[in-house]
Simulated assay, not measured.
Amino acid sequence: LSPPSLQSTSSDLLGLNVRLINGTGSCSGRVEVYYKGQWGTVCDDYWDIKDADVVCKQIGCGRAVYVHRNANFGRGTGPILLDDVHCFGGEKSITECRHNEFGIHWCNHGQDAGVTCSGEESFLF
């Protein structure tokens, strides 16, 4: 097996390979990514504000205002697709950030990552 390509596609740039589930609206929730025909979760190992910020910007929801860990928005049911995500903050897609290979992880759905973005919470500022 060759390693998966990490190059962006047009759907990456449009934010179509990431979604937020079980939040209070479209700009908060459990982070899920789409890879090889299925949605899966992101493990919260090393999950921080820079990682969350890339997700928020990617889906057009502004900046990250809160990072959630430990399946705050409920446990996912599909595969865990990303673990040990490390973004610098300027990436256009979470898949451009450093991470283990897709599907390689050392966690369970009790560690699903989430985010709250400013796009939904802008009235607080």
Rank of each mutant, 00 (worst) to 15 (best):
V31W: 02
L20D: 03
C61W: 01
G103M: 09
R75A: 13
T24L: 13
T41L: 14
I80K: 10
G76M: 15
T41R: 14
A113T: 06
R69I: 12
V65I: 13
E91A: 06
H105N: 08
N100S: 13
W39R: 12
D53A: 01
F123N: 02
C27Y: 06
E96R: 07
I21W: 11
K36Q: 15
K92S: 14
E32D: 11
G29T: 11
I104N: 13
S118L: 04
G119I: 00
D44V: 02
I94E: 04
H99F: 00
F123Y: 13
E91D: 07
C27K: 02
W106Q: 15
W39K: 15
S10F: 03
S8Q: 07
G110E: 10
F102N: 03
D83R: 04
C27V: 01
C117T: 05
D83S: 11
G62H: 11
T95A: 08
S26V: 05
F88N: 15
L1C: 10
F88Y: 12
K92C: 05
G119T: 09
E120P: 04
G103Q: 12
R69T: 04
Y66K: 14
D12W: 11
Q58P: 10
F102H: 09
K36E: 15
L82C: 08
C117A: 00
E121V: 12
E96N: 09
S26Y: 15
S5P: 10
N70Y: 07
L13E: 05
V65W: 14
Y35N: 03
D51C: 02
V18Y: 00
S122C: 09
D112T: 15
G76V: 09
G89P: 03
E120M: 08
L1P: 10
T9I: 09
H109D: 04
L6F: 06
V85L: 06
T116D: 04
F102K: 09
C117W: 05
R69G: 02
C117M: 00
S122D: 05
C43D: 01
V18L: 06
C56P: 03
C43S: 04
Q111F: 11
I59S: 00
W106S: 12
H68Y: 12
F125P: 00
K50N: 05
N108D: 15
V18W: 12
I49R: 08
G76F: 14
S28E: 14
T116K: 04
S5Q: 03
H86V: 14
K50W: 05
G15P: 02
P4I: 11
Q111Y: 15
I59F: 04
Q7I: 01
G76S: 08
I49K: 07
K50A: 00
G76C: 14
C56N: 01
